[in-house]
Write a protein that binds this DNA or RNA. Structure first.
Length: 474
DNA sequence: TGAAATGTTGGGGCG
DNA sequence: ACGCCCCAACATTTC
């Protein structure tokens, strides 16, 4: 027996059933629900490798959730407009619901989809679930977008608090009769080599584990967040970034979970949500920032862009232990601590004079939490070419950062086994260790571990000089 | 969400 | 007792 026409819910980066406004609304209408995820062939930017791994597991988790709710997830691939138009005619659906996304390139796509569907006599509705505050409602007094985080966040905090998360919908009516792709066919997982083998020991994608991690964080570690958040060796952060990036959690859920466990909006943790918010609003308002420095004069920066140095950087073979440990952790786990993102970012851009866009692309490929807005904002911030950003002359010293935030070298020993035998005193600076100590630790500089590929003091001077020249020209 | 250079102050060693 | 130097500790400025 054929079902009556369903309501289509198009899942994108909102791979959750709780606090999912589009799904919730569909569940309220007393009709079958047809949830669909589309592998978009016309996506503005193909997902990176690590994100694909996450997507695979997140989709399989979402499939399980939706089976429990009674409406299995349909997988299709192609251009979103074609797929949805086809689905609408196959199923007779008149209503297509989704949660709004804010990246202008994706919004352009959604507009096309809308036009096509409306042209076919369908109704399209979009809902708000991806952000805490609406970009259109968060502007300066004369209606301009904010460019400075503190002003932006102050205004956000003066508004009513974000609304409470919606509940998980009750049982959904299944729509029968359509078949979709098999997730495995999408080949989102790496085969040979399987570089993602280590990911699973660090992560469990999906809404259930996102919720568990959130609960664990707000109950046990939120209180120490401020004092530990910069310590990669102590696991002081929430590690929710990938769950948020794929929408397995909504920022509202994180907000209220933290609030109920004693966080104040002014506190450090919610402020981090503020940065996420700010990044998304910024990319929404300034689409070009994905690839172009917001300060125009950085267009002419005299980059060196040396392939050999780049290779050392990506392999975690720069000779600066904190940089190398961070880059190898990124490769092995698909994630990097935020403090270390700043350290390696500063190193790439300022010590090696390699354009931030290359770093941004590398992160895009290797981070499980790769998010166009946060990634571009972060790189513009660290390279000094954003409007609100670290001034260019703010150059991190990898040695000082390492010793300050990994004082016992615990993090280094975990990711750089070849240095693990060095005493605390030298592990951040193996090139200063006396030969006897190196020998005892089994370290051969230049063989088991590289000497520094640049001398930081000189690299710093060179970067400042390049920056000074830039200022002279403009 | 920086680091280095430079300036200032004050205590202690020492002739 | 005094002036001088050194240097650590801290503050300010500069990149």
């Amino acid at each position: 027996m054929a079902s009556s026409p369903p309501i289509i819910v198009w899942f994108r980066r909102d791979l959750r059933v709780t606090d999912n406004p589009a799904l919730y609304e569909a569940s309220q209408r007393g009709r079958p629900v047809l949830p669909v995820y589309i592998l978009e062939e016309d996506a503005p930017r193909p997902l990176g490798g690590a994100a694909k791994w996450w997507l695979h597991h997140s989709l399989s988790a979402l499939k399980r959730e939706l089976v429990c709710l009674g409406a299995p997830l349909l997988l299709r691939r192609g251009r979103a407009a074609d797929v949805l138009a086809h689905l609408a005619s196959e199923s007779g659906a008149t209503d297509i619901l989704w949660n709004q996304r804010y990246d202008p390139r994706e919004m352009a796509l959604d507009q096309t989809v809308t036009k096509v569907l409306v042209g076919l006599g369908r109704r399209v509705e979009s809902f708000k679930g991806a952000l805490l505050f609406e970009p259109a409602e968060t502007t300066t007094q004369n209606g301009q977008p904010f460019q400075i985080f503190t002003a932006f966040w102050r205004q956000c905090l003066s508004k009513p608090e974000p609304s409470r998360p919606l509940p998980r919908p009750a049982k959904l009516q299944e729509y029968f009769g359509l078949s979709g792709d098999d997730l495995a066919e999408w080949r989102l997982l790496p085969k040979k080599p399987d570089w993602a083998a280590g990911f699973a020991t660090s992560w469990t994608p999906g809404e259930d584990s996102a919720d568990a991690r959130l609960t664990d964080f707000v109950e046990d570690r939120l209180a120490d967040y401020l004092s530990l958040r910069n310590r990669p060796d102590l696991d002081g952060t929430s590690r929710l970034s990938a769950h948020l990036a794929f929408g397995e959690l909504s920022p509202r859920q994180v907000w209220h979970a933290a609030r109920m466990n004693g966080a104040f909006p002014e506190d450090g943790f919610l402020r981090q949500l503020g940065w996420r918010e700010f990044s998304h609003h910024m990319l929404h308002q300034f689409p070009a920032m994905a690839t172009t420095p917001r300060r125009a004069r950085f267009q002419d920066f005299p980059w060196q862009d040396d392939e050999e140095l780049w290779r050392h950087f990506t392999l975690g073979q720069t000779g600066y232990p904190i940089v190398d440990a961070a880059m190898r952790a990124l490769w092995e786990t698909g994630w990097m601590h935020n403090r270390l993102r700043m350290v390696v970012g500063s190193f790439l851009v300022k010590d090696l004079l390699i354009p931030w866009q290359r770093g941004e692309q590398w992160f895009w490929d290797t981070l499980v939490d790769a998010d166009p807005a946060c990634n571009a904002c972060g790189w513009q911030w660290i390279s000094g070419c954003g409007i609100e950003s670290a001034p260019y002359f703010r150059i991190f010293n990898p040695l000082i950062q390492g010793e300050r935030f990994d004082p016992d070298g615990q993090y280094l020993r975990r990711w750089l086994p070849e240095l693990s035998g060095l005493p605390d005193r030298f592990i951040h600076r193996p090139w200063e260790a006396p030969p006897t100590i190196l020998k005892k630790a089994g370290v051969q500089l230049g063989r088991t571990y590289p000497p520094p590929i640049v001398e930081h003091a000189k690299a710093r001077d060179r970067a400042l000089e390049a920056f000074a020249r830039l200022r002279l020209v403009h």
